[in-house]
Simulated scan of single mutants.
Amino acid sequence: MTNQPYEPYEPHRPYGAQEPYPQQPQGWPGQQQAYGDPYADQQHTQQWQGQTWETQLQAPVVAPAEETSYLPPVPGPEQAQAYGAPAAAPAPAPVAPDRDGPEYGPATLGGNARVTDAQRARAEGRSPIIEPGIQPAALTALLGLLIAGGAVLGTYGLLVPLVVLQAVTAAGWFRLNGMWPARQGIALGFLGALAADAALLVSDGSPAAILGTLGVWVLLSLVLQLRSHADPDERMYGLMATVAAAALAIAAGGYLAADADAVTVGAVAVAAAMLVRALPGPTAVSVVVALAVAAGAGFATGVLTGTDGVTGALVGVGAAVCALIGHRVASYDYPSRFVHFTAGVALPLALAAPAVYVLGRVVA
């Protein structure tokens, strides 16, 4: 059996005239047609009664975000097990901040500053002041009594507790400003205090020795900070802390320049005022009572040393006012326990030294 010839060319039919396509001749069994009808597949598909792949309704395939993202996230243990991939170390879970401890701000590329306890206290409407307490006050009283007893013994008897006071003052001031360890600054301030003590001993207690030593140490601190390779802000902050520590330690040397009786009266008054101030109670009442006790202690000590009682009371009140200011400074901005046992102990006595010198000269 041979293939039938093609139908002759048929002219174009007018629009709307429908004529079924001519049936194509069948070829030999197993033989594919060389020139098949381009609509044959569509025709057979439309006549097929069963469901095929083309006739079934297929849901759209949506790729997961993990496969289409530029940087896929690190899978956890569950996802890694589902995909058959080894599990990577997932980032540690965030830990909720402890309300009793320090809080930190959110991490950013620019770097957030640490949220200190004092900043959190201000944001919550609480006071950032924590007073040293009874133990630092007891140490202040002990050191004050040692200074008072050293003044009775003489200049060199006063020098030993004074050197201890100056060393603790320099260390406490740096720690109070959040700079630790600051061995260079502490050593510089302490050496300035020793230089002032030596100048006072040589000059027989002249106040010019304190002022001259302070001026030299300010210049020395400035030169050392200019040679530092730290940032400008950090250098300025270090310069101010070094100058202040040296100034406080050198000013404490005023006990050597003051009258011995005034030193005894002022040191005893400060010791009594700090013990009373450390007792629990309202702040305003505690301050008033501390000043009253300091006046009484100064009056009694003045009588014992042969000084007028009124003079002793005035010296005692003036020294106690400066001591309370130092106590308040040591309580500022949520200080640590180390601050309480350094600055909290030394600053009341160190700030009282200029008042003891001035009032001892003026009132006596």
Rank of each mutant, 00 (worst) to 15 (best):
M1W: 09
Y6G: 15
Y6N: 11
P8L: 13
Y9Q: 11
H12G: 13
P14H: 15
E19D: 10
P20G: 11
Y21T: 10
Y21G: 13
Q23E: 12
P25T: 11
Q26V: 12
W28A: 15
Q31W: 07
A34K: 10
Y35F: 10
G36Q: 14
A40M: 03
D41Y: 07
D41S: 08
Q43N: 10
H44K: 12
Q46L: 12
W48L: 09
T52L: 07
W53N: 13
T55M: 08
V61S: 13
P64S: 06
Y70F: 05
P72W: 05
V74T: 12
P75H: 02
Q79T: 10
Q79V: 14
A80K: 00
G84S: 06
A85K: 09
A85C: 12
P86H: 04
A87K: 04
A89E: 14
A89W: 00
P90A: 15
P90N: 09
R99S: 14
R99K: 14
A107D: 08
T108P: 01
G110M: 10
G110Q: 10
N112M: 11
T116R: 06
A118N: 01
R120S: 03
E124H: 13
I129L: 07
P132L: 09
A138Q: 08
A138T: 10
T140G: 01
G144H: 06
G149D: 14
G154R: 11
G154P: 08
T155Q: 13
Y156Q: 11
L158A: 08
V163D: 13
V164D: 06
L165N: 11
V168E: 03
V168H: 01
G172D: 06
F174E: 04
R175T: 09
L176W: 00
W180S: 05
G185E: 05
I186S: 03
L191N: 11
G192I: 00
G192Y: 03
L194T: 11
A195L: 12
A195V: 13
D197H: 03
G205T: 05
A209C: 08
L214V: 06
V218W: 15
V223P: 01
S228K: 03
H229K: 12
D233S: 10
T242W: 00
T242D: 08
V243R: 00
A247R: 04
A249N: 06
A249F: 02
A249E: 04
A257E: 01
T264R: 07
G266H: 00
A267G: 10
A269E: 01
V270A: 03
V270Q: 01
A271D: 03
A273T: 09
A278E: 02
A278W: 01
L279R: 13
P280W: 00
T283S: 15
A290N: 00
A292I: 05
V293E: 07
A295R: 03
G298Q: 04
G298P: 02
A300V: 11
T305E: 10
T305A: 12
D308H: 05
G309C: 00
A313S: 03
A313H: 03
A319C: 07
I325P: 02
G326T: 00
A343S: 09
P348K: 06
V358C: 07
G360L: 07
R361I: 05
V362R: 10
V363M: 07
